[in-house]
Design a protein around this nucleic acid. Structure first.
Lengths: 142, 142
DNA sequence: CGGTAATCTGGACTGAGTCCAAATCGCGAT
DNA sequence: ATCGCGATTTGGACTCAGTCCAGATTACCG
C-alpha cells in the first residue's frame, strides 16, 4: 500500500503537469509519516533521519511543486517558518501567542474558498483564516 | 495638529502601560505620513528619508510596542516581510499570487475577533483572513 | 532506446528579524 | 526642578528562512 500511495501520488502530480520525481515522492512520504504541521526544515530533518539524503533546496522545491499540485497545503501562520501539511479537509489555524502552538480549526464551509470578499477584487482561490490568541493550556497557567 | 496627534498617541501608549518614547512617536508619525501597508524596512527607509536616523532594530521595537498598544495593526500576508498599518477599521487582505499586490478587504463584522472557531480552543483575540488569488489587473493581462 | 526539457544539487547568497550588553531616557516620586 | 530607577534604545553581530545559479541528472515522450 506504500506502493499504491506512491503510484497515486505520481498520477496526481502528472495530472497537474508535473513530473513524478524521487525527491517529490520522498517528501510526500515523509510528510505522511510525520503528520501534522511541519516546516520545510522539519521535513528535511525527518528525511535525513531516515537516511534519505536530500539537499535543503530540494525539499523547498518539492514542497512548492506538491503544493501547486494540491497534494500538500501551505499555511502561513505568522512570524517564523511557514508550515505545510498533507492535504485533507480544508481547515484553518489557531496560533497561541504565548507558546506558539498551532491548532487546527475545522472550516464550517468545507471547500475552497470558504469565504468571499464583499468587494470585487479579482479571482479568489482560497481564504486562509488565522486565529490568534491564548490557547487553553497557556490560559490555565496564568 | 501634528502636536495633538502626538499628544494623543502618547496618552494611548501610556494607557497601555508603555512609555511614550521618541522612536515610537517617530515611527507612528512616519506611518501616518506614508499610509497603506508598510514593511518594517519601508518605515525605516521613510524615516531616513526625512533625516530621522534610527537603527533598524528600534523600528522593530517601536512597531512591536505600537502594535501591542493597538495603535498599529500587524498583518502577516504570506512569504516575505510582514506589513503594518495604522489602526483603523478592522479589515482583511487580498494578496495577488502573480504581482504580490495587497488589497484591503472590508470586514463585514467590523470588530475583533470577527470570526469565532467552531471548537473551543482558548481565548481568541483576533481572526485574520488572507484571501489569495489573482487580482483583477493580472487576470486582465493573461 | 535516445533526445530533451524539466528537475535536482549544493554552495553561496539575500533579507527579515532577533539577541545582547552598554548607554540613554521617561516619568513617578521627592 | 531634579533624582533615580527601570524601561527602552542602540548598533553590531548573529540566526534562520528561503532564494539563486549553473552544471549534472533524470523522467517521460516518441
Amino acid at each position: 500500500m506504500e506502493d499504491t500511495f506512491r503510484a497515486e501520488a505520481s498520477a496526481r502530480l502528472r495530472e497537474a503537469g508535473l513530473r513524478a520525481t524521487g525527491p517529490r515522492l520522498a517528501v510526500l512520504t515523509a510528510m505522511r509519516r510525520m503528520g501534522g504541521h511541519r516546516t520545510a526544515d522539519e521535513v528535511h530533518a525527518g528525511l535525513i533521519e531516515q537516511d534519505v539524503r536530500l539537499p535543503r533546496t530540494s525539499v523547498y522545491n518539492a514542497l512548492a511543486a506538491l503544493s501547486s499540485a494540491g497534494l500538500v497545503n501551505y499555511a502561513d501562520i505568522g512570524p517564523g517558518a511557514a508550515v505545510y501539511e498533507t492535504a485533507g479537509e480544508w481547515h484553518h489555524h489557531f496560533v497561541c501567542r504565548r507558546c506558539g502552538a498551532v491548532l487546527d480549526v475545522p472550516c464550517a464551509a468545507g471547500g475552497k474558498p470558504c469565504l468571499t470578499p464583499d468587494i470585487e477584487v479579482g479571482v479568489v482561490e482560497e481564504a486562509q483564516v488565522i486565529f490568534r490568541g491564548v490557547c487553553a493550556d497557556c490560559a490555565a497557567s496564568a
